[in-house]
């Protein structure tokens, strides 16, 4: 059954190193010298980095809040993270076009209030807003798992010694959650590297990401060699990060 996955991957590798069945590194060479690819590559990294960091910043208080609830209440809160998690990314992206568009909710409201309107769609802002929305649940889960695994006696001990909530958070809870945050970062970063629908629906010409470029090469220019080479680069980057994630998970036990 794993063949079902390995064979297609083999095809990608094969195609990325060959043109018309002849071995060549031409695909990678031309990619690395292609301004389009280089631009898209950096755009992808930039969007992924910002979206992941914002998602962590939004997700951390969520995880913290959920971790402090009783078990019953916790499962109710979890539903509020799981529902958006299981909502189609296409639906969420579409919702953002409706909210952020020129005739969208926010701009309509601003117009009604006679305030200046903003371009929030077909640009970087739109992509980042929708990507972050998609990534937040993925940031919440590893952080929450880490927070729940922390020894509750540590906080109690600190409290007995006279520490207030803010000090307990910054000196104990937050430093101990480091591995959870790192795991969340790698997870959200890898996921955003592969974003497809969101940049296509909410981004402009300059917000094309690697997945869209693969689509472009496959569909519009029929350059399978270039498309496969990008896929290999994407796969390689993700794999390295995921191995890193594995190591983070391995060291998590000491906490």
């Amino acid at each position: 059954m794993s063949l079902g996955f390995i064979v297609p991957l083999g095809f990608i590798f094969f195609r990325s190193f060959t043109i018309d069945g002849v071995f060549t590194l031409e695909g990678f060479r031309s990619l690395l010298t292609s301004p389009l690819f280089v631009r898209v590559f950096w755009t992808t990294l930039e969007i992924s980095l910002i979206a992941s960091i914002v998602a962590l910043a939004v997700g951390y208080p969520v995880a913290l809040h959920i971790s402090r609830q009783s078990e019953r209440v916790r499962s109710l809160y979890l539903i509020m993270v799981l529902l958006p998690f299981w909502t189609s990314i296409l639906v969420k992206s579409y919702a953002f076009t409706v909210i952020l568009g020129d005739a969208g909710l926010i701009n309509t409201a601003l117009r009604a209030l006679r305030l200046p309107q903003f371009e929030m769609i077909f640009n970087r802002f739109g992509v980042l807003a929708a990507s972050t929305n998609f990534l937040v649940p993925f940031a919440v889960f590893p952080i929450l798992a880490n927070l729940l695994a922390q020894d509750p006696n540590l906080g109690k001990a600190a409290e007995v010694m006279g520490a207030g909530p803010l000090r307990i958070f910054w000196r104990i809870t937050f430093p101990l959650s480091g591995s959870g945050v790192l795991a969340g970062f790698i997870l959200t970063f890898v996921l955003s590297l592969g974003l497809f629908a969101t940049p296509a629906l909410l981004g402009g010409r300059h917000d094309m990401m690697m997945a869209n470029l693969i689509d472009f090469y496959t569909r519009d220019t029929l350059n399978w060699n270039a498309a496969s080479a990008i896929a290999v680069i994407l796969l390689f980057t993700s794999a390295v990060l995921l191995l890193l994630l594995n190591r983070v998970r391995g060291t998590e036990k000491f906490a």
Partner: peptide, 18 residues
């Protein structure tokens, strides 16, 4: 608790691992 000026020793030590 934090204003009571007490000390406490726990069964699992509750030392800050970091």
């Amino acid at each position: 608790t934090r204003q009571r000026g007490l000390g406490m020793v726990f069964q699992n030590y509750a030392l800050m691992p970091h």
